[in-house]
Design a protein around this nucleic acid. Structure first.
Lengths: 346, 346
DNA sequence: TTCTGGCACTCCAGGCAGTGGAGTGCTAAA
DNA sequence: TTTAGCACTCCACTGCCTGGAGTGCCAGAA
């Protein structure tokens, strides 16, 4: 990351105007337009001089000689770091989002899906949400349901009221009554345990009964499998928003992005790296480690479910996005998500 | 549906050749190509005469005067009804699909997602799957987990090992022990009940305890809400397959279809209408009730979960698709899905 | 009657040139 | 330091042309 030398005030104003106008219209911004719309006191020639400087220092670029200017990644970066006004979401949007969350389901997955939906809607971009990371799932409750004498449905309630199920064949027939007894025994013992805890306490938990040992082993395995799956899953919503944007008229760009979304693993890696301390993080174009994302920007932040458990939420879109608006709205949804999830934690 | 008058045999052969070639290459088929590739014994002039007839009777059309022929919806229909060979999926595809299903999860949703994924992959189109319809969900098991003294997590296991959860506030504190007792009581009573059953038997089930009555009421409501939601949900997968097809180079067509997919309700209506008796149903272009789908074909069939419960599974894509191949593969996945689900039923 | 070779015709895709306009850089004067 | 003026560049758009693919039709062959 190279150091940013502050620009002279007027250059800043011009950069801001170019970015603001371009992010809204998508048309390269010329000196005459700037003079007429943003700098009535100045002539277009003066502005041309400044624009030429800004191109020289790498904040702006020209698609071709006789076109207006558009921001470079560096220009966006400067804008985001120093010039951007966070546009507080208008009251109707705020209200609508809140209302959606009032009717939120009482479980993790439902809330995350809702967040993805709302975020996509109010930012008019593609939203991304990961499940809470950085901690292992803890068991809240176990239930054993007999499907037939030789197989049992194991239901795990994890933190966040997350349900997980697994069908296990049994080495020998066990009745529902026995299963129920086993379940209530386990419930007393394992509340709050992680997959690793279970495995460690295996001998203490069930030295006697073969079935019980077997079931506990499989539960431990299931939780750990789930935890590792969860690391890579990235929810998304709002692909249809991309079609409205001229930069995605080129189908190959759309395809690239869609593959990334349906694939997920690469994105996941990018999202992991969002620092928890930071407020909202903006990653612009080529700043992105992955080359597929060189023309995309990410606006990311974290939400919290509990002291330890945090996840990433944000937006992916063209580098030409209304950063001020998007940042504020990502923050809004992150906050609503946190509130909904903290209500779950217990 | 107008009546189909059988075509003379040679016309049929030519129609078949046009459809076969066009569905693979996407290039309008000319008389010379046909003569060289499919009808060595005939001259291109002869074929031209037949082609002109087929255009006259509405089976083929010309994009413009000096182009080759492409099938009309009617041409595809005739092909599908009378000419199509079902191309049995090659052994490696068959095997790969089977393998995927061997590792299928043991619950309805997971299996349906898997079906959508596999079907999209092997047909290289967008797959559609609805949950089983035409019956109300039946309760298999109930569990009550105390979250805090004043709220309870209700877990329902429905047919197909489908989990449903609901958090209920309690009018007054109830301990986990009481909840467990209540749950085991309910389990004995309600196994196999539908939402309506519960409501009908409410007084018999729980005349005494306020909490129990309240919980049973909410369970009944939850199941019925779920049943009605389920009617409209349509899973889909494989949107990225569309990008490879030249007909979707036009972004607006993609957008239309994607909106339909993310919206879901309209599609749902179309899928409901698939007759259970029929084998595989093919709906071509304008045959479709919805105008958004006038350039799309659907290949649909049903899968069965149990005697009463069936769902719809199939593919949506451009009218130019390889019907013979797609039909056979939809049938394959439908069968694998049925097998996986019937293993669940108990 | 059916098929076929021949031929004139149609239409599209792609290349090419011309044009108007938007926007620029530079220079000289205010 | 700003600005008016001007020559210049480049793109987007249009019209034109051309080669080629494919056609329809007709007259003669089978």
């Amino acid at each position: 990351m190279e150091e940013q030398i502050p620009l002279a005030s007027r250059k800043e104003q011009i950069l801001r105007a170019v970015v603001s106008d371009y992010t809204v219209t998508g048309i390269p911004v010329g000196s005459q337009l700037l003079a007429a719309k943003y700098f009535v006191a100045l002539s277009s020639a003066t502005i041309r001089n400044e624009l030429a400087d800004l191109v020289g220092t790498g904040y702006l670029q020209q698609p071709h000689t006789s076109a207006g200017r558009i921001p470079t990644d560096r220009g966006y970066r400067y804008f985001v770091d120093f010039l951007m006004d966070q546009e507080a979401p208008p009251p109707n949007i705020r209200r609508a989002a809140k209302q959606e969350f009032e009717r939120a389901p009482h479980h993790l997955e439902g809330i995350l899906e809702l967040s993805a939906m709302v975020l996509a809607q109010i930012t008019e971009n593609v939203s991304l949400v990961t499940a809470p990371q950085a901690n292992e799932s803890r068991i809240k409750h176990i239930d054993l349901v007999s499907l037939d004498p030789q197989s049992v449905l194991v239901i795990l309630v994890l933190e966040g009221n997350l349900l997980r199920q697994e069908v296990l064949p049994l080495p020998r027939p066990v009745s529902q009554d026995d299963l129920s007894r086993m379940a209530s025994l386990l419930n007393q013992e394992v509340r709050g345990a992680t997959g690793d805890d279970l495995r460690a306490r295996l001998d203490r938990l069930a030295p006697q009964e073969l079935e019980q040992r077997y079931i506990v082993e499989r539960i431990a395995e299931s939780i750990r499998r789930y935890d590792s799956q969860r690391q890579t899953a990235v929810l998304h919503d709002g692909v249809r928003n991309l079609f409205r944007q001229p930069e995605f008229l080129d189908v190959s760009r759309l395809e690239e992005l869609l593959e990334l979304l349906e694939e997920g693993a690469q994105l996941s890696a990018a999202l992991q790296q969002v620092a928890f301390e930071k407020d909202v993080e903006v990653i612009i174009g080529r700043e992105n480690p992955s080359t597929e994302l060189r023309e995309c920007s990410l606006v990311l932040t974290t939400y919290r479910m509990s002291e330890r458990a945090r996840g990433t939420i944000g937006v992916i879109g063209s580098t030409r996005m209304r950063y001020g608006q998007v940042v504020a709205r990502v923050r809004l949804v992150s906050q609503l998500t946190s509130e909904a999830l903290e209500r779950l934690a217990s």
